[in-house]
Nucleic acid binder design. Structure first.
Lengths: 244, 244
DNA sequence: GCCGAAAGCTGCTCTCGCTCAGTTTCCTAT
DNA sequence: ATAGGAAACTGAGCGAGAGCAGCTTTCGGC
């Protein structure tokens, strides 16, 4: 197993606050209860109570709400370093389902342990609250995405956001990243149909902007892509790196 | 001034936890720094730092994100009893603008006072965190609204949600409520144009479901309306009333 | 190496919601 | 009373994206 300071969560939180050895070791303790989950088997279920939270170590997950009509809206994808169901440990009932997209390695975190860790290392608490606030900012940005951007901008913006998030944990560059999502999942996240996503991806490819193929996103012209959809990633960085 | 236990915030939190006199008086102290804000003058500005939070006592506000293109997406409206900018006191920079829709009375709350109140009355902390979680659940529901519902369902769902929220603070019944929103604001919240909102409202009126006119929402057939848009308000109630 | 399922891809038609270009109503200031 | 401005409302035309139907490629299991 890799050292804690190379773990995705440490990389991510470290981009926001400088973590001392003491804080890293507390983080390490939270990582003890390591579990593996299989793709497609629900991890947190809408309506269920007393769930644990998890820190995602490897693999991708997604959280979604199901409609009575059968259609689903994916609220967000989670990538390594992200929390799963942080809210559902503060509150009794989960209001959405979390499902692994790939096989997933995650550390179970009990409310007690987390609060305990907070009281010992306030800086860690700040960092985790920052992460929670960032998650909320992303949901808000997805709302803007659905409400005010067309299919093309929406798709490009979303794939750029994922890239920025993955870059933080060392899983992407401006060249691109490995992406296990199907076009169906992308459609459920972007409020579009898979058929239409397919056409939009073709357009983006033909325009030399990005290629979504064979489990990989390739930014063929990163700068032009960013400019063409007006992607402003400050909502992901919040205050910029290195508090204090 | 009315007694604290009749204030919107006490009514709202009281629906979730039973508040003792001691807790009510702590809540009362948070209400000391009462301010008045004029409609249309920004209260919290996107990108600004070190903002205060507020508890809304009377009037309506809205929070939105502005696009480079000029269009805006309203993330949510705030009604009496709601917090404004709770997140921006935990974190340095606001990622959205908050603007009073009407003239507004609100109590300024400093981070210090809030955290101090939490340590004295843990039950109040639970209640406030519940409120924050409920706000997030609403944003998620708005996401589903934009992603997976058509204009008619979207509009009806949104007005039903507002009704449910206002009922909690005694400002609505199943018959309807006073609503200071213009059709333009409704459009910006629902990702539609004002023109189309207008047509949808006419349809809903002609179908005898609801009337949106002269600053008032009237539910002409509440039950049929709820059924027709599959409105499930559990995300607003979370665990139901009266913890402990 | 073959089979079946899932994912990816394409063409055609239709409709929901946007755009543009107004008119009408109401509200406020003079 | 009246002008001016916002909000509400209407009609005609158009286009982005949905729905449907079918084809092709990829990939895991035997």
């Amino acid at each position: 197993m890799t050292a804690i300071h190379e773990s995705p969560i440490a990389l991510k939180l470290g981009a926001f606050v400088a973590l001392s050895d003491a804080e890293l070791s507390v983080l390490d303790e939270l990582h003890r209860r390591r579990r593996t989950f299989l793709a497609g088997r629900d991890l947190v279920l809408q309506g269920q109570s007393d769930q644990s939270a998890y820190i995602l170590a490897s693999g991708w997950a997604c959280s979604y709400k199901l409609q009575a009509s059968g259609s689903r809206q994916i609220v967000d994808f989670q990538v390594p370093g992200d929390f799963l169901g942080l809210r559902s440990i503060l509150f009794r009932t989960a209001d959405h389902t979390i499902e692994p997209v790939t096989n997933v390695e995650a550390s179970e975190v009990h409310a007690r342990d987390l609060l305990n860790a907070f009281s010992r290392t306030p800086k860690l608490a700040t960092a985790v609250l920052w992460a929670a606030s960032r998650d909320e900012a992303m949901v808000v940005e997805h709302l803007v995405n659905l409400g005010r951007r067309n299919a093309r901008e929406r798709t490009a913006h979303f794939l750029l956001e994922l890239g920025a998030r993955l870059k933080l944990v060392g899983l992407a560059t401006n060249a691109g990243y490995e992406c296990p999502l199907s076009q169906y999942m992308l459609a459920d996240a972007l409020g579009l149909t898979a058929v239409h996503i397919n056409r939009v991806l073709r357009e983006l490819r033909e325009d030399g902007l990005l290629t979504f193929q064979k489990g990989r996103v390739t930014f063929d012209d990163f700068d032009r892509l960013v400019a063409s959809v007006d992607f402003d990633k400050t909502y992901l960085d919040q205050d910029g790196p290195l508090l204090r």
